Amino acid sequence: MTINYTHCIRCGRHLTSTKSQANGYGPTCARKIRTATVDTADYKTHQVTSARELIEDGAIVPLRSTVFLAISTDGTETYRSAPTGCTCPAGRKGERCYHQLAARMLLAA
C-alpha cells in the first residue's frame, strides 16, 4: 500500500511534486532531516540505517510535539515513539530502538 501525502509531515506545507508526495517531505525538510546532527553513538549501525529508512519511507509521523507514530518493519503494527521511549517490544524492555532514533532525528531537523 502506497501513501501519497498532500502535506509535508514535518512542516505541514502543501506538497506539489509527485516525489515529495510519495516521500511525505518537501525538498527542504528532507534535506534538513538528512543533515540533522544526532548523537548515534549508543545505537548499532543497523539501527541507524533502519531509522533513516523509516523516515525516508514516511513510516513515522508526528502525533504531538515530541510523540510520533511509527510503523513496524513488516507494516502490521504501529508504535508510539518518542526520543526517550517507545511502545515496541525493545522499547518496552527499556532498550534503545530505531524508532526512538528516528524521532530524535526528526526533532533535530
Rank of each mutant, 00 (worst) to 15 (best):
I55F: 11
G58Y: 00
D39W: 10
T40H: 03
T66D: 13
D57T: 12
I60S: 08
T16L: 07
A70P: 14
I55C: 11
L69F: 01
T35Q: 15
R64W: 00
S65I: 14
R64L: 02
A22D: 10
D74V: 00
G58A: 15
A36P: 00
E53V: 05
A51H: 03
E56S: 14
T37W: 06
I33D: 04
T28H: 02
I55P: 07
T28Y: 03
D74R: 06
V61K: 15
K44F: 14
T37C: 07
A41R: 09
V61E: 13
K44Q: 15
L69Q: 04
R31Q: 12
D39M: 00
T18D: 06
V38H: 14
S65A: 15
R64N: 01
Q47F: 10
T49F: 01
P62E: 14
T66F: 01
T16M: 08
R31S: 09
T45H: 13
A36Y: 03
G24A: 04
S50I: 04
D57W: 12
Q47R: 03
R64Y: 01
A22V: 13
P27C: 08
D74W: 03
Y43A: 09
F68Y: 01
G75I: 02
A51N: 04
D39G: 02
A22I: 09
H46D: 04
S20Q: 03
Y43W: 15
T28G: 04
A70M: 07
A51Y: 00
K19I: 02
E53R: 11
R34S: 05
R64C: 01
V48Q: 04
R34E: 06
K19Q: 13
T49A: 05
I60N: 00
D42E: 15
G58D: 04
I60L: 02
R31M: 07
T66S: 08
Q21W: 09
D74K: 10
S50H: 07
Q47T: 04
L69N: 01
T37L: 11
T40C: 06
Q21S: 11
T73F: 05
A36W: 03
G75H: 06
A30H: 06
I60F: 03
Q47C: 08
T35S: 15
S50E: 07
E53W: 08
R52T: 13
N23A: 03
A30E: 13
I55G: 11
Y43K: 00
H46W: 04
T16D: 06
